[in-house]
Design a protein around this nucleic acid. Sequence first.
DNA 1: TAGGTCAGCGCC
DNA 2: AAAGGGCGCTGACCTA
Length: 532
Amino acid sequence: MRIALDPGSRDAPPRVRRLDEHGVPLGDVEVLPDLFAVARLEKEHAPRWVIARPRTYRRLLDAGVEVARAHDVELTEGLLVAADGHFGQPHGLAAAVARLEGRTPAADPLRDDDGPPALFESGPVGDELADVVAVHAAQQARLTDPRMRLLVAAESAGGLVAEEMRATGLPWRADVHDALLTEALGPRPVLGGRPPKLAVLAAEVDAAFGRRVNVDSPAEVLRAFGRVGVELETTRSWELKGVDHPAVAPLLAYKELARLHTAHGWAWLRTWVRPDGHGRGRFHPEYVVGGVVSGRWATRGGGALQIPKAVRAAVRADPGWKLVVADASQLEPRVLAALSGDHALAPDEDDLYAALAAREFGDDRAKAKLALLSAMYGAGSGSAAQLMGRLRKRFPAAMAFVDDAARAGEEGRLVRSHLGRTCPPARPGHEEPAAARARGRFTRNFVVQATAAEWALVLLADLRSDLRGAGSPARLVFFQHDEVVLHVPAEAAAATADAVQAAATTAGRRLFGATPVRFPMQARVVDGYDEH
DNA sequence: TAGGTCAGCGCC
DNA sequence: AAAGGGCGCTGACCTA
């Protein structure tokens, strides 16, 4: 059974309507006394909840209610709109209703929040429950492809996981973070100036140039090098590394530490880590499901998907608890092997790059890795393109698969992932050869990256479902493209690690059926996220 | 002063 | 060595 839900507002009670699998109402609108009544329906019927995200589930969680399954009409609308080649069109509930009624949809509201509709929204305030029911029925009628249905279910489950992770938060020890900042930068400056070690390095750069240089200004640094006879294109680290000048060493050291200070220093800690009152803290990033064209998630606030290795020691399990950190091994080449049916690309080995190096690249693992990455990213020229040529001979089916995707992009055709996520079409008026090639690199990568994101999404959905079914106390606390972190009582850690690996195998089967390609996941039980 | 873009670098 | 896909965030710098 499915149940459509309007969570109501401060002034209006929640309302539900039971639906069959096609979205046809099975009865009248029911008014609930409060959101907790949802928990009772969940227990009785275990329905798939038809909701509009994220305000709905966020409010359920705030009320202490979790649900197992959902159909998110807004996430689904985004997938369907893109599938029609209309990427970038609004896909919120109001836009979906407008489309149903043959009107031109207005832009989506800038931010989904959990408040009631604004007083002066354009047009009359609609009946959210009726809207959800109508949009859902139309979507179900369109969702005839089993792969697309799997994608919709996984995307919707992702919406649930994202809200749960936001609410739970990633365990973050502010004291550990502070200690490692002090170790790297010196004591925290009281008035917000440069930390001591940064000041020292900046002074060393000044001394090397014999004049005052603002090390934070790339333009000024370029001019300073120009004056001493060193002509640089940029001040990027890799370019500076090739320069023989006494300013280079302190400058590189400065850039690295300055990055730590500005991006993940004390200001970040104060802004993003909320103390829980027990000497611990939690980092609560907001995940944006489907926020990236390829279906990868984005985050809002705190740069959660760019936590540098240097501060990961601050992510520590609570006393008596463990972290289970699991990442998929070489996911993208395995996905390409399964997608293209070129199974020789992914033999039954844990390290694909090493295996490929042994067979083709004289045991040079770095070369093998570069060749494979170039195949999936597209290499324009140079040695990488040469390496791709060797792959083309050895793995013709796999290379033909990505080459086809690249050609489709260059010709302005739509490209889709394995489950049916659609790459946005090229903007008209960009037919110059350089733009077309760039487009080709984009679509070449899209088919692999988007399918890898689908695998990870299905893994996440299955894992969540398995853990719930087993009554596990483990909590998902972090998800980053091909990696998951769970926070779990120590006694349940080993079983949780097993569950992750099982879910990885299941995800491979759900996407690709009886493929011989394995999708191994390394799951480690640790106290800190920095441990390997 | 407020807003945008760019350069640079963190992550996958 | 340093080229090829996807992001978010920061300070510098420029414009209105």
